[in-house]
């Protein structure tokens, strides 16, 4: 049973068809890469899955449940979390608090819980959220920077913090939007290792990434988008030599020479 299924999903913004009749399936435990040229609709797919956009047609199911018309926070509560292509951290808050906010889904107390913050049960909840946050920070090796403000981290650290925050949601599906963008080769290597670790902990991953070496080395399967439609799907080695993919990336007439 696939974890996430998109069936004939389209979304239009005015006259523009950003995603066109897309079928997509994320299987339990896999790393699926979504690739394609700029403007192919990859980030739009992420926004559809996380409820930021609503599909114009088609259905999106997560664990058999239709999530088309769910709010983003509902979807997060069901176990889908994400990072952003352009970093969206809580800049003026500490690294630790950023991840604690990620752990929001794992707590219950609201306004009245806050007013009873001195009660043992509430303190216990706070402690368990804090220890979850610390675990996530250790995993991305930011546990020595907990008190720094998020905005003061280096670019690579900010990317890792976004992953830690997304992990604190305790997702079963993690969406990574260009996780390797702007990283140096060493950082990329470490990031690959980190993503493998996350996969090993039982979290399925859907990622958008432009770095082909990164994608080929990490993915179990690859889906290629162009102009909002799926043009290829398969194992990395199948996709790599697919003429339609080469054409989409490099243009017509070159495919014969490759």
């Amino acid at each position: 049973m696939p974890l996430l299924t998109m069936e004939r999903v389209s979304v239009r913004f005015g006259g523009l068809v950003a995603v066109n009749q897309l079928d997509l399936e994320v299987r339990q435990g896999e790393i699926l890469a979504l690739i394609g040229p700029n403007g192919a609709g990859k980030s739009t797919v992420f926004n559809l899955i996380t409820g930021i956009y609503r599909p114009t047609e088609g259905t999106i199911r997560f664990r058999e449940e239709m999530i088309n018309d769910k709010q983003p926070h509902d979807i997060a509560m069901r176990g889908i979390s994400r990072t952003f292509q352009t970093i969206h951290l809580f800049n003026e808050l500490s690294v630790f608090e950023n991840v604690l906010i990620g752990a929001h889904t794992q707590g219950k107390s609201g306004l009245f819980g806050a007013l009873g913050g001195f009660l043992p049960a509430k303190r216990r909840e706070e402690r368990s959220l804090a220890s979850l946050a610390r675990e996530c920070l250790e995993l991305v090796q930011l546990d020595s920077k907990t008190e720094e403000l998020a905005k003061n981290l280096s670019y690579g650290e900010q990317r890792r913090l976004e992953i830690a925050r997304a992990l604190a949601v305790k997702p079963s599906l993690l969406l990574l939007d260009e996780p390797a963008a702007g990283m140096n080769p060493q950082e990329k290597k470490e990031l690959m290792e980190l993503i493998r670790q996350i996969q090993a902990s039982g979290i399925s991953i859907l990622m958008v990434e432009h770095d082909m070496k990164f994608v080929m080395g990490l993915s179990d399967r690859i889906v290629v988008l162009d102009y909002g439609a799926k043009i290829a799907e398969g194992l990395p080695e199948e996709v790599r030599f697919n003429p339609a993919v080469i054409e989409a990336y490099l243009g017509k007439g070159v495919s014969g020479q490759c």
Partner: peptide
Amino acid sequence: AMILIQNSRFGRALRAIREDEIAAETMGIN
């Protein structure tokens, strides 16, 4: 009351909204 609110899950959610509403929403905050 304000001290309790600010040092709670509830208060953190409010700060998250101030910092980045879209990110707050995708962290499960209504």
